[in-house]
């Protein structure tokens, strides 16, 4: 067994320490090591975006990030999006617009949309579509997702 790497990081505002193999992805660490299963594995090679998380505010596919790269970073996952009580506005708008069906891609979309709105609070529809092009959804046809994000941003479409 190869030597495990000790990593100190912050996940959803809480300090977290974990041990991982040198070749373990952040997604594996989250799901298998920390039992945070909100981030989903749809492809494990960066095509689908279901595992999207924020790393120091930057949107990443956690299947393409090594656990060992998380030292001294701040990670935000779907589990850390909502405030203590209630839902994040994006989550609320996803409900209202029925922007999900099977829901397996939904955490990734919400995390990706949050990353957009954090830096660009009033995006155009065009910007939302391009930003979310890295997230695949097989159920909804995307339109309701776009509406939900634009509505959250207070942008009419």
């Amino acid at each position: 067994m190869s030597k495990k790497i000790q990593v100190s990081t912050t996940i959803n505002g809480e300090p977290v320490e974990f041990l991982c193999e040198s070749n373990q992805s952040l997604l594996e660490v989250l799901r298998d090591g920390l039992n945070m299963t909100g981030s989903k594995e749809g492809c494990n090679n960066g095509n689908c975006g279901a595992c999207s998380v924020l790393m120091d505010g930057r949107l990443v596919n956690s299947c393409l990030v090594l656990g060992a790269e998380c030292e001294d970073t701040k990670i935000t996952t779907i589990e850390g999006i909502a405030p203590k009580e209630g839902l994040h506005p994006l989550q609320q708008k996803f409900l209202e617009h029925a922007a999900l069906q099977c829901g397996i891609c939904t955490p990734g979309f919400i995390v990706a949309a949050k990353a957009l709105l954090d830096t660009n609070p009033h995006p155009t529809e065009h910007e939302v579509r391009y930003w979310l092009a890295g997230n695949l959804c097989r159920c909804t046809g995307y339109d309701k997702i776009i509406r939900a994000v634009l509505d959250t941003a207070g942008v009419s479409s």
Binding site: M36, T37, K40, F94, L95, T106, P107
Partner: peptide, 15 residues
């Protein structure tokens, strides 16, 4: 609103 929506938007739904 679908009855499983809240669990799905918070990452709490179990597949």
């Amino acid at each position: 609103t679908r009855i499983d929506a809240r669990a799905k938007v918070t990452g709490q739904a179990h597949y």
